[in-house]
Amino acid sequence: MATGPTGLGPDHAACTDELVTAMRARLNAMDPPQGDNVDDPGVRPNFEALGSGVHAILTVRAQPLSTKDDDPDFWAWTAAVITHLADLRAWQQVVRQAVQNWAPADTPGQQFRQAFLDVPLPGQFPGPVPEQQKGHIR
């Protein structure tokens, strides 16, 4: 059994291992303990089938959703990043305007000014801040 969050992996192996471990613990609680039954080669295909089904439910059918109520730390961080990007854009516009207003007298200054103004600006902000995030489990 895994000791910490490791993800599901690319196939049903982790789900199968968790089922085997859980069943072994349950059977070992019996008197007499019967956990060794899960190691019977004829039983493993049943755990594989169950593991495959659980993996499919989690990775194909699940539709996880995150909202501000579900994960406030993530959404607070997202809002802070968006604010930071807006601040950077405002700073960029001020700097660009200052360079545009600058009239250097020497050739190197004029070349720098033109090179600076030739740097393309990023496009507009991509739209409203999302209210939720849908995803899938891998």
Rank of each mutant, 00 (worst) to 15 (best):
Q132F: 11
D36L: 09
Q97I: 02
A90F: 00
A80C: 04
A62Y: 03
L8Q: 04
A49L: 09
D17K: 13
M23H: 09
D106K: 03
T3K: 14
R26Y: 15
L65S: 10
C15A: 11
P108M: 00
A80K: 06
L88F: 14
G51C: 03
I137W: 08
D36E: 04
A115T: 08
D106L: 06
V129I: 07
M23C: 14
A13G: 11
T59K: 00
V119S: 01
W102V: 01
V95P: 00
Q34Y: 11
V94K: 13
D11A: 07
A90C: 05
R26S: 12
Q100D: 04
D39F: 05
T78Q: 15
A86C: 05
G109M: 03
R138I: 12
D118W: 06
V54R: 12
A62E: 09
A14N: 06
P128M: 08
G53M: 11
N46G: 12
G123V: 05
Q97K: 11
L65I: 07
L85F: 10
D11V: 06
F74C: 01
H84M: 05
G135N: 09
A22P: 14
R24S: 01
V95H: 07
I82N: 12
E48D: 13
V99M: 05
D69E: 12
A105E: 11
R96S: 00
G35D: 00
P64Q: 10
Q63F: 07
G7V: 02
S66Q: 15
G42P: 04
L88M: 14
G53A: 15
S66H: 05
L88S: 06
L8D: 02
Q111I: 11
L117I: 08
A103Y: 06
Q93A: 13
P108L: 00
A2N: 14
G4H: 14
L27Y: 03
P10D: 13
E131G: 14
W77D: 14
N46K: 07
H12C: 03
N46C: 12
V43A: 06
T59D: 01
G4F: 11
A79D: 13
E131Y: 08
L8A: 01
L27I: 04
